[in-house]
């Protein structure tokens, strides 16, 4: 119970070229609107160097083709009929699209070949290595595995906390309470997590739900309209999963914070806190403390570790009974003003 057991990742198999146009490369489309529905099925990019020279064995034609300075300069060394022949050779394959870096241009005759073959030609002002970097990052995100989790995702002091637990345990109510205290809602009920650069999970809501929320007994409310723009955000890195549970006398809960096991989602390890709840327990404040404690740890201070080391130090000193008595209190004598 609690954490959804059917976490099947959703994999994007293809995206249309029109989606890639959103990548931050300031694309200019040189081929009107043709071929924008072409599918991109691979996140890797390809430079067609040898294919342009006529060798199309092992040509990764299904990838996005990048024409850098090498390709453009090579084409320039050829006569126009040879240029046309070289391009015709590679456009017989169903290339998803061609990208010209450094604002390079192709002859109108070559552009026309691409239009006929329904291959969009996109131009960017960035140099090849920058274009590679920006586009790889964009495509990596698009083709990343994603999962949907049932829970409430809130940014608490800049720490992304996902509350999970059985339905009706009060996840949305905790989120609402946190929003009241100035924290920000990322998504409620349906949280989409995407793996980024292998070690990071980014969370967001769905386009339909956005920042709507269901509160039992009230119905559906819109957090953005009620609390304003500062109460929401669209994306947040997931840092902690708080698993809410009904109080169980038999279960054991961590007392020192030294024995927490992380949770694995999409192969990424995420800190987990198991939190038993019962009426009257202020989970909101605990959530804030969890966030602040996480920040302290991230910035190098682990309270449970520090306390444990202090204790070990004391044990090592083997101080006698008298000294223990003296040191029991933080201060050795009370000041006279009785303040």
């Amino acid at each position: 119970m609690g954490i959804q057991s059917n976490l099947k990742p959703i994999m994007q198999e293809k995206i249309p070229v029109s989606v890639m146009l959103q990548a931050p490369l300031k694309f200019k489309c040189l081929t009107d609107e043709v071929g924008l529905d072409n599918s991109i099925t691979d996140k890797n990019l390809h430079r067609p160097q040898l294919a342009l020279a006529g060798y199309v064995g092992l040509f990764s034609w299904h990838r996005v083709q990048i024409f850098g300075n090498t390709e453009t300069n090579y084409l320039r060394t050829l006569t126009l009929p040879d240029r046309i022949k070289a391009l015709e050779k590679i456009t017989q394959f169903r290339l998803p699209c061609i990208i010209l870096t450094n604002n390079n241009m192709l002859d109108q005759e070559l552009i026309d070949i691409c239009i006929n073959a329904e291959i969009p030609v996109l131009q960017t002002e960035y140099d090849t290595s920058k274009a590679f970097y920006l586009l790889s990052e964009f495509l990596d995100d698009q083709f990343s595995p994603q999962i949907v989790m049932h829970g409430s995702f809130v940014d608490v002091y800049g720490v992304g906390i996902l509350f999970v637990g059985r339905s009706g345990i009060g996840k949305s109510e905790i989120a609402l309470d946190l929003i009241e205290r100035g924290h920000r809602l990322v998504a409620d009920d349906v949280v989409m997590l995407t793996k980024k650069r292998e070690t990071i999970l980014m969370g967001t809501g769905t386009s339909l739900v956005q920042h709507f929320m269901e509160i039992r007994g009230l119905g559906i409310i819109d957090i953005r309209q009620m609390f304003g723009i500062r109460s929401i955000r669209f994306q947040k890195r997931l840092e902690i999963v708080v698993e809410l549970e009904d109080w169980d006398d038999k279960a054991t809960y961590t007392r020192t914070g030294l024995d927490e096991l992380p949770l694995e989602i999409l192969g990424v390890e995420i800190s987990k806190v198991k939190l038993p709840i019962f009426p009257g327990k202020n989970i909101t404040v605990i959530a804030e403390v969890i966030a602040i404690n996480y920040l302290l740890r991230t910035y190098g201070y682990d309270a449970s570790q520090v306390f444990s080391e202090k204790l070990n130090e004391r044990i090592r000193q083997k101080s006698g009974v008298k000294k223990i008595f003296e040191e029991k209190r933080i201060i050795s004598y009370f000041q006279g003003d009785n303040e």
Partner: peptide, 20 residues
């Protein structure tokens, strides 16, 4: 109880989820 459509799976006890 989970409901899923095209691999998109949600908790069927969440109304927001079902409507998604």
């Amino acid at each position: 109880i989970y409901l899923s459509r095209d691999g998109f799976s949600i908790n069927a006890k969440s109304i927001i989820g079902v409507m998604t």
